[in-house]
Write a protein that binds this DNA or RNA. Structure first.
Lengths: 196, 196, 196, 196
DNA sequence: AATGAATGAGAATTCATTCAT
DNA sequence: CATGAATGAATTCTCATTCAT
């Protein structure tokens, strides 16, 4: 039945995300994925064609939920600054829940030869656009200084948050998420004091 | 001659950095490194013992120059904010010159299962400390707001700059370095306008 | 309906002949056959039981029409030499229409380790017998020199014609069939000139 | 040492020819080849890169000795007809000694998609040229009838002899080679009687 | 009568590493 | 110092076949 097929695929996704996130692409074998998913090795190939395609699908589909959360975060905010803080929160929360997956993504983000480079770039741009729109809104509304480059800043904020989140989870996993959000807010407004 | 040995070693370093940065650890073969360096495969083993040791040495020795430059940047600055800007500049300049190497480092930064984990962590902390000291100085001297966490911010600034640099080199390599420094300064002082 | 079943079977035959002829047994997958025939893979097994049985059936049934045409060619001829020429024509015409199938057959003709070995040998002998009978008639009637070995010559003529046909279709497909028949006739009478 | 490498390569060639000839491409594993050659599987890849390349090399280099023998046969003959008979003899003798190899070649001769198709076509044309030149000499010298197409006839003679040889070795291996040469000569002069 | 998801044994291929020279 | 032929364990990938629907 179609439902069975979908379920198997979903299970493989779940398991592959775990393993690839923990160990990276090179150290994870298709065998491991199959065993942990409780299916035969051939089944992985039946569903994804190759290990590389599995990862491509993983990245493309695994990042989509983050994009959705971020869209939702924007919808629930009135000002640009509020939206940006909500975006930071959404990203941090997502990464907290999918830490291993994020490691995988960050690890592959600047790779040049991978087949899944393009898939990643695509979703990434979708997410960066969401951030950029808020930055533009903030600049237009006078909430943010006009001399920032929204595209550059959006990319930087996205990765800043992601990598800060990874450091957070690696070094101080006990720290409450809101404190981290606060730190990032302050970091991006670091010079406030001296401008008063 | 000793010189020959050193030269071979240096050549292997150079080539390995390129390849590992472009393709990652798992996708780069010792064969490739040897071929591109113009030596026999055995020579790689003669010099480094194993692929993992090669990478370990690479990271440890390759990151040290960055630490040195950053120390120099601090020495040449009077205020903390000047020092932080000089540090950003130093990091960007280094990455511009060693783009592939940076990709390798960023890629390995959150991987726990690697032989060179400790070596990487060591140099990283050395560099982060340099940044943190300036942040602390800034806070103490009233140049920076007191509610930032210097350790967290130092780590975040280091990686923010690194990843922003990679995006810069990937998407807008023609952009002058000073503009990028400026963008990062503004990004970390984004809220200035509304505080006036 | 029976008609449906037959039609599916016939379609599988057609498609399998094409693919097996082009790529050989080892390089043709049951998947490919099913896809090109527009049926599910299970259907191939429903109809033929296994890949090997499919090929066995293919060879046995696919070669039978050639045997029939050759019998008909003999029936329409008065002299042995006329019959031999008609046989050549019949074989060439058949191959022209079933080029891929012929490649498959020729390819398997000297392989000993195949499941369909016997089936192939059987039809082959049937065809060779038809040719041999005409050679014997020719020898007995004084039309042909008495020192040829009819069995050897019959086998050789059969394969000679088949392989010449494949070369013809591969290198000079535009050449009219009658010219090829003529060339083969002359080839098997090459010494004529000097005996005059 | 280079000699060692060459020896290993030669041994692999020998063994691969045997196995591929007996079992065909699809049924012969690289493992088998390695085991029978007494080397590790990796060694096969070290020398040939892939199974397909091994076969390509095999065909290209394995057929060369036949070409050489045929050139020698021509050199030792005065008339065209004598040369043609010597060529038949040379081909038969070669095949008798390399029966399995010939099966491999014939089996692959009309395959379309193989990488080694070209390699085979190349050597084949070299051999066919040797035959064609004698046919042309025979036609020009009036030894042979002028209305044969030398290229067509050369190709046909080459394959006729090869396939006749395979039938000979399969069905009547005890028959002396000279008798087979005679049969082929008579087959290609079959019409002699009636022209008298 | 047909389907197609799942299987798993088997093959091809890769590559870090060794070692004799 | 350097080499590069050889290794073989580990991995990816293939595909004929099965079976529940």
């Amino acid at each position: 039945m179609v439902r069975d097929k979908d379920r198997t695929r979903a299970r493989l996704f779940e398991v592959a995300t775990e393993l690839l996130g923990e160990q990276g692409f090179g150290s994870t074998t298709v065998d491991e994925i199959a065993v942990r998913a409780g299916v035969a090795k051939g089944t992985v190939y039946y569903h994804f064609g190759s290990k590389a395609e599995l990862v491509t699908a993983l990245i493309a589909e695994g990042l989509e939920p983050l994009a959705e959360r971020m869209r939702a975060a924007v919808d629930g905010s009135s000002t640009a600054r509020e939206a940006l803080e909500a975006l930071t929160y959404a990203e941090l929360a997502f990464i907290q829940e999918h830490c291993a997956f994020t490691k995988l993504v960050v690890t592959e983000l600047w790779r040049e030869d991978r087949a899944w480079r393009d898939a990643l770039e695509l979703v990434r741009e979708r997410i960066v656009t969401i951030i950029r729109q808020q930055l533009e809104r903030g600049v237009e509304g006078g909430e943010l200084r006009p001399d920032i480059d929204p595209q550059f800043a959006a990319r930087a904020l996205f990765v800043l948050t992601a990598t800060a989140a990874l450091d957070w989870l690696a070094f101080e996993p006990g720290r409450p998420i809101n404190e981290v959000v606060g730190q990032i807010r302050r970091l991006t407004a670091m010079a406030v004091v001296q401008t008063v």
